[in-house]
């Protein structure tokens, strides 16, 4: 059985219809909308989006990969993001990232084999007073330590297995 969910082309079309056809300036907004629904950007979605906006598929892919915010492989059920901003860095963010890499056994940017976790990093979310910061499924977890993060991941893992 394929782990990749079947693509809903109708959904993709309806997302694209919310943007004016042929308007390349909507390109990044379109990518965001697609990813918000699909959680990543599969090939078919990029092809359809390129058609809709009147740009080549190669350009669509070139632009999409230029940005850090887009993903091209299915992501895990939970997304753990470590803020690597300067304020977080001087307060020990690299140690958080290393800890998460060890615990999840993936490199930053990767997804665990069971598709439970994706580990990502971001270059500052502007919540510098809370640093070092981990963002778990969109929720900011401030003043993080490697030990605290480790516990959190273990708990999430247990819950997910149930």
């Amino acid at each position: 059985m394929s782990r990749t969910p079947k693509l809903d082309k109708k959904l993709i079309s309806s997302i694209l219809q919310q943007h004016k056809a042929g308007d390349a300036s909507a390109l990044v907004n379109v990518l965001h909308d697609l990813q918000a629904h699909l959680r990543y950007l599969p090939q078919e979605a990029l092809e359809m989006a390129a058609d809709h906006l009147g740009v080549s598929y190669a350009q669509m892919y070139g632009v999409a990969t230029f940005y850090e915010g887009f993903h091209f492989k299915p992501r895990g059920e939970h997304v753990v993001t470590i803020c690597m901003g300067t304020a977080c860095h001087v307060r020990g963010a690299p140690r958080l990232l290393e800890q998460a890499e060890r615990d999840l056994n993936v490199e930053s940017g990767g997804t665990t084999k069971d598709l439970m976790f994706s580990l990502e990093q971001v270059n500052c979310v502007g919540a510098c007073a809370l640093g070092p910061l981990a963002i778990v499924d969109g929720t900011y977890k401030g003043s993080m330590t490697p030990a605290k993060l480790s516990n959190l991941l273990k708990k999430m893992h247990k819950k997910g297995k149930k």
Binding site: Y57, A58, Q59, Y61, G62, T65
Partner: peptide, 30 residues
């Protein structure tokens, strides 16, 4: 490739990860 109207190749990624290639590293119809 763009100038000739084929649009098969593209620049992928950025910075120290920038490379030349095809979308999703798959052969292109173009």
């Amino acid at each position: 490739c763009d100038m000739l109207g084929h649009h098969a190749l593209t620049t992928v990624g950025r910075g120290d990860k920038k490379r030349i290639g095809l979308p999703f590293n798959k052969p292109s119809d173009n």
